[in-house]
Nucleic acid binder design. Structure first.
Length: 258
DNA sequence: ATGACTTACCCGGTAAGA
């Protein structure tokens, strides 16, 4: 089974690329972030015609997450919205059961500029995620928490670490909170299978970043111990970043033993 | 540290992304 995450940066603008990618790479499960559209605008017909069922949690202009699963799989929503703050109306989390697999799709706040209220919101959101994740990590059910974490975990995850010194994705508080999340027992799939190499999932639109391979790793798939035992392979569909009108993120995926 | 692109909004300048 192939499980992917893809920050589309606007699903309206990205629908042709998404459909092409689904056709060519055929993930069994695809989690989307930054759809930037209200629920009523979700292209459910095109997704269905591509062979996928879907659940989605949209919002006007910003954010928005969805879980797609091939139509031979059972897809049932478990919940939407991250618990812990009833005032938080941003659409950044959706959770589903795909057959026996529990899937949490997330779009963590970027947090820039830091310091400031946006960074405070990011750190608070991370703490809420840590609380949520604690209830999932030790389940006997396989669980994957995946999406755009807006966290660059280490120097190995950025083309030039000094360029991120003041960036919310790389500040010590951000990395420390992410480390506490991993320490619950989650496996960072891409880093575990590739302990020593630079891997990027995002290339800025500015300054020909993709052409220079000036990337960073922001999109992660975290597996609980039950699922980590079944991890087989992983990859980043970097070539998708080179298509016409690309998202600034590339699809990132794992395969697991059935 | 910012913003050389890109998107969405409401209709061309602003806000947001990372």
């Amino acid at each position: 089974m192939k499980i992917a995450t893809y920050n589309v940066n606007g699903l309206n603008a990205r629908l042709p690329s998404l459909l092409r990618w689904l056709q060519e790479e055929a993930p069994d499960v695809a989690c989307l972030q930054e759809m930037k559209m209200i629920d009523e605008k979700f292209p459910s017909l095109a997704i269905m015609n591509a062979g996928y069922n879907a659940i989605w949690h949209g919002q006007k202009s910003w954010n928005g997450v969805a879980i797609l699963a091939k139509n031979n799989l059972e897809l049932n929503e478990v919940g939407r919205g991250l618990p812990g703050d009833p005032e938080d109306l941003q659409s950044r989390f959706i959770e589903a059961r795909v057959n026996d697999l529990l899937v949490g799709c997330l779009y963590l706040p970027n947090g820039n500029p830091a310091p400031g209220p946006k960074f405070d919101y990011k750190l608070a959101w991370l703490e809420r995620l840590i609380t949520k994740a604690k209830s999932l990590v030790e389940l006997e059910t396989p669980v994957v928490l995946l999406g755009d974490y807006n966290v660059v975990p280490t120097d190995l995850d950025v083309y030039k670490p000094e360029r991120l010194t003041y960036d919310a994705v790389f500040l010590p508080e951000t990395k420390e909170a992410y480390r506490r999340l991993l320490d619950q027992g989650w496996t960072d799939a891409l880093r575990t299978l590739n302990p020593d190499i630079k891997i990027y999932t995002f290339w800025d639109y500015f300054r020909n970043s993709y052409g220079r391979d000036a990337g960073i790793r922001l999109d992660h798939l975290l597996l609980n111990p039950v699922l980590a035992k079944r991890l087989q392979t992983c990859g980043v569909d970097r070539h998708v970043r080179g298509w016409e009108k690309p998202s600034d993120h590339a699809p990132t995926w794992i395969t697991i033993e059935d």
